[in-house]
Design a binder for these strands. Sequence first.
DNA 1: GGCAATATATTTAGCTTGTATCTAAAATAC
DNA 2: GTATTTTAGATACAAGCTAAATATATTGCC
Lengths: 392, 392
Amino acid sequence: MPHAAAATPQLLRRVNAQSVLGVIRATEVATGTELMARTGLTRASVIAVCEDLIRRGWIRELDARDEDQPGSPRKGRPARRFELNSRAGFVLGLDIGAATTTAAVADLRGTVLGRSSESFRAADIPAEERIDVVDRACRRALAAAGTGPASVLAVGAGIAAPVDRDGNVLASQHFWSLFDVGLRSALKELHGWTVLLENDANLAALGERWRGSGAGVDDLVVLLAGERLGAGVMESGRLLHGRGGAAGEMGYLDLVQGVGSSDGIATLARQWSAAGGGPAAGGEASARRVFEDAAAGDPAALAILDRLSERMARVIASVSSFINPEQVVIGGAVAESAGALLPGITALLPRFTATPPRVTVSPLGDAIVTVGAIRHALDYVEANALELELGR
Amino acid sequence: MPHAAAATPQLLRRVNAQSVLGVIRATEVATGTELMARTGLTRASVIAVCEDLIRRGWIRELDARDEDQPGSPRKGRPARRFELNSRAGFVLGLDIGAATTTAAVADLRGTVLGRSSESFRAADIPAEERIDVVDRACRRALAAAGTGPASVLAVGAGIAAPVDRDGNVLASQHFWSLFDVGLRSALKELHGWTVLLENDANLAALGERWRGSGAGVDDLVVLLAGERLGAGVMESGRLLHGRGGAAGEMGYLDLVQGVGSSDGIATLARQWSAAGGGPAAGGEASARRVFEDAAAGDPAALAILDRLSERMARVIASVSSFINPEQVVIGGAVAESAGALLPGITALLPRFTATPPRVTVSPLGDAIVTVGAIRHALDYVEANALELELGR
DNA sequence: GGCAATATATTTAGCTTGTATCTAAAATAC
DNA sequence: GTATTTTAGATACAAGCTAAATATATTGCC
């Protein structure tokens, strides 16, 4: 039973091919000389690796200068130019909610090419029907992107429940626990897809670090406030899961003074509307009303916003004092409104924690989970590029 | 600017040498055939790697069978046998407290060979004097181990303050912030040592996972309760630091109902003694008294223990609901007494968190930080084995 | 004591992948 | 139209691995 696979000469090629591919992913077009500089390899190796990658379908050689160089009028023999074959395959990013599923298709650069949302007929439909609806969303999104199921290299999927490092849902989560295995085996069987299940807040964190306001931040917490309040925690650039995938769950807020774990945004909105005299039905409308009133200078509305800011500050502070992130991003349904609360929250934070983070609001809107799901799938594809078969 | 170093054929040897060395570390004596099986390498490679490791001083070949094989009366040509040269170098583990410093010396297998504690003259002595005392503890421990400063390969050191991933103390930590740079440069200059500074609770977690009750647990939290209450958090086998090294700080307990961050054990002991009518001076004596009274059936003492159990349960629950560890270990000054509280804590946990962990008490006693510091230093030595020069 | 069986050691040939160096090619610049 | 410059391509060689053939030392049996 070999503990570790022996390192054979082929490993070198894999490592160097990954390194070259990484550079090509990060640039528009790369010449051999550029690749030499960025990877530290010699020209011979770079060329050999590129031929390899071309044969496997991951990159493409641009032919003779059919375009004018914008910057430098280069002297010397023209360089061979390589670029990522970004349409060599596609990934799917899924946001599977309780009422709705959204599927997004992206190419290997992460450019979103198609999108589709489907609603579930009812909350208590059987797992098969639910999977059917998910599948329909996927196929429609693929059609919108002008491609088909065979070109999908990986599927990232987010649900609002703890998911462990292996993509399994805890057995105690009755609502989702059957769904995870079923979804994976169904999509594997129907299309041959590899489904990577993750917690929605974790995906939000991936998305925010990739294309949101936490770009490039290694120690990042994303609060996903919607039907539920959950946190996606990245430490040193890695997602935290914990033993059963429940890291980032906010259940402990029950124990925190001045907040309650049921203080998801729905609850808060209901409270605002109650206190602010907005429309009786809690939700977006009433929340917007409170913000409008506050903007108009209404003292009652302003007081509500103050209370809300303090609440958010307490939540953020409790997380920050234990995890010490560089930045906390507020995302989900509240994000749009939360901008108005930022100054208040930021001002209050030092009162509650010795390590106050930068606080921002997500610019990704509804797409926060699908963007993260796409990133999650791309991470998988990039890590396994040389094992995946392209061009089916 | 090469982003990544090019993978040359030499990389293979490094990878395979690390792999062979890892197996040899994990066994008493290994034959070539065993190494082949465990590493997946061929005999030729295994032998070549071993000759290499012998030349570098990390392993040693045992000569002809000067001992009888206990288990198997082996047929065939006798195998060459290799073992770790565990005295090829040593590591130091330091526990630098406010009042005392303890140094422990261990060989490459982690066997502790020498130990020494030194007290500081006063709390407000200048950094140089403090460093002097630390140095004295080191030299005495080395002498006790029968070796000297030249054989030290790395030094792990724990302090009761946030330390970031690079071993730096936040500038805002006045007490330690000058100390860290000074300590490192002083020991580097005096003896050429590499000092790896870490938070004491983090080291406690390393120690507990290595030789404590959390052996082999990847998602582990160690609560280090002494003058301060701090947590060392391991997720997926890695220590959490956060942006400034303050991950695991318990400041958020200020925000938690029914606990306060000042509820270190000293405070609790004071409260017990007050409530239990023990000796007026808070501390060990009074704490012990409460436990004795409780064991004797005294209702007041029992009530105190109940309150204390609930408090601990709340603390553990708040951590566990956010981090979802598999196990929480209670260590530090309280550990000895805490055993009596375990049943109560375990029973209360499900009331406060949906993901209750296993709770245990550290068996490492006072040594918890030095053991972790040794592990920390060994991790460094093992990771950099092929870059380190042996046998000065 | 000699011989088969067995397990391990050693040697040799060949493959992959890398570097280093030299020569050839294709563009610009004057 | 020739020199300069930049990149491409080819050749020689080194490191490290596998695989297969050969050699060696021990046990066990007759």
